[in-house]
Design a protein around this nucleic acid. Structure first.
Ligand SMILES: [Zn+2]
Ligand SMILES: [Zn+2]
Ligand SMILES: [Zn+2]
Ligand SMILES: [Zn+2]
Lengths: 133, 133
DNA sequence: TGGTGAATGTTATGACATAACATGTTATTG
DNA sequence: CAATAACATGTTATGTCATAACATTCACCA
């Protein structure tokens, strides 16, 4: 599914570090701005690095945000179906997976002879901290 | 959750009919092009109608495609959690819901004191027809 | 050493979405 | 019948996300 990662190039490392340091998801253009001082000039420099990092499974794309986050479990490299809980207030993203949900969706696909290639689960709302405040 | 729909305005009806007639999801700009002959000139005319129709629950937005589809069950107006299976080949979209998945995600949210406001589930892949062909 | 493939740099363009403001349309209601 | 309020619409401009196309550089190995 995901390609094994050799070592990262300079651009890939910079982008990954930027995401890893960030509080929440970042858009490609936000990453670009943060990396101007490191010589980044054009969106493609970011998008190309993001593509590779996605392939390595080191980051994820949040479809409902058009943004990217560093993987919360970059070592358990073979995580199956992943879900994201995204706080609309503080931007915090919680990455988790659920066997039951995964099996259930796989069951639906099998019943309908649908060959799933990529599944997106994103829950938008308010996190515990933001609700408490 | 969704507001009750009074009757639709001319623009809203045109946009909804366009989506209902379509084979698959349409982007806002594709809808705009299809409605040029009906007097549509600017993206906002489409986006405003789409916003209302989303509020009425008559259409859905597919986050992973930046596109829109007519609701497959526009009468069962109170559908809970919806999932979409999207064929990458023919564009067909299958809209379904699953009680178990819904309860499971609600359980996660409760456990983590996360207040879910909108949940997206989108499965991309190949439909039965396209796999047979 | 030179040739191959991958990564990078750069410019331009395409695709998706909204801000801001003016105008029109349709009830209420005094 | 105004006056008004609420909503829908039209229009221009701009903002945001993503890729096409092409030139150059780099790392590696025959
Ligand atoms: Zn992950
Ligand atoms: Zn929060
Ligand atoms: Zn529906
Ligand atoms: Zn298909």
């Amino acid at each position: 599914m995901t390609t094994a990662s050799p070592e990262l190039t300079r651009n890939q490392s910079l982008v990954l570090e930027t995401l890893a340091k960030a509080e929440g998801p970042l858009s490609a253009y936000t990453i670009l701005d943060k990396l101007r001082d490191d010589g980044f000039r054009a969106p493609l420099q970011v998008y190309r690095a993001l593509d590779k990092l996605l392939g390595f499974g080191l980051i994820h794309r949040l479809e409902s945000l058009n943004a990217f986050v560093a993987c919360a479990h970059p070592h358990c490299h073979a995580h199956g179906l992943i879900a994201f809980a995204i706080c609309e207030k503080c931007g915090q993203v919680d990455e988790f997976s659920d066997e039951v949900v995964q099996k259930r969706l796989a069951g639906w696909a099998e019943d309908h002879r649908f060959k799933a290639e990529k599944t997106t689960i994103e829950i938008r709302g308010r996190c515990a901290n933001c609700l408490a405040a």
